[in-house]
Nucleic acid binder design. Structure first.
Lengths: 138, 138
DNA sequence: TTCCATGCAAAGGGTTTGCACTCTC
DNA sequence: GAGAGTGCAAACCCTTTGCATGGAA
């Protein structure tokens, strides 16, 4: 299979220690060309514009793989689906509960102060801040 | 139907403006006797220990009703299910990604500082802070 | 009688899994 | 030829919905 079509993404997969394949390149291209906040189904849809034969299962597996390898961040914000954030640098999020829209809090705008008190044997994985916003009825 | 079995919960429903029925009392009892963090299925299970005939749909509907009326808070923390918090006072959460365990950050221990920048026509609904924790492999 | 609440069962939607096939090393 | 990756379809699980029944005002 021709894996040379997305040359910009090959290095990125290699750095993460992920064997390069065509579906992975296509998915990486959807995710990493620009910063995005997307659901798995949105990724599937956009990937199929490039490569119509890619399977749903492959997209889901690949997203989980990317998360595991630290290329992608899972956002647990919406009760009905997982969103993925292609920016892995620490930052927080706005979430519009009316529209499902999701966008970044500029770094430094909000900050969590204080010392978390972790149980023995526990490791801090992440601190998520979600600013939930509702569009006012006009 | 005998709605007098859980006298302590009747007042609570009335204050929230919710017509008192037996299933609602049983569900309220599971939620409000002690502070809890529970999923809908856990509520169903515990309610059925008291009242075996209560339907799954009734539990889900009632939980949504309680949230709408401000008696209960939804926690979007786990990608596979919604958790409900019977404490509605503002506070943040620890979440153990290994076990699914969920507990409160003591009030004042962590604080979000800064000014959120909301788009025009948007109203701040809530700021959620979730401290994700992982049990270290022994 | 009208409306709301309930039980029951089925549908819905996002995600995962099983299996056979292909490709690579 | 062994193992990994993929496509396809079905299974899975949480949640919602439709419908008929029963009760309350």
């Amino acid at each position: 299979m021709d894996t040379q079509v997305f040359p910009d993404m090959i290095e990125r997969l290699r750095e993460a220690g992920i064997p390069v394949t065509f579906p992975r390149l296509a998915i990486a291209r959807v995710l990493f060309t620009h910063p995005v906040h997307v659901s798995a189904e949105q990724v599937l849809e956009r990937v199929r514009e490039i490569a119509p034969d890619i399977a749903r299962g492959t997209v889901y597996n690949t997203l989980n793989l990317f998360v595991e390898k630290g290329m992608l961040r899972e956002l647990i914000v919406d009760p009905t689906r997982v969103y993925y954030d292609s920016t892995t640098t620490p930052h927080h999020h706005y979430y519009d509960v009316t529209t499902g829209e999701l966008w970044d809090v500029p770094v430094g705008q909000l900050r969590v102060v204080g010392t978390p008190d972790l149980p023995a044997g526990a490791v801090l994985e992440d601190i998520d801040v979600i600013v939930r916003v509702r569009r006012r009825a006009a």
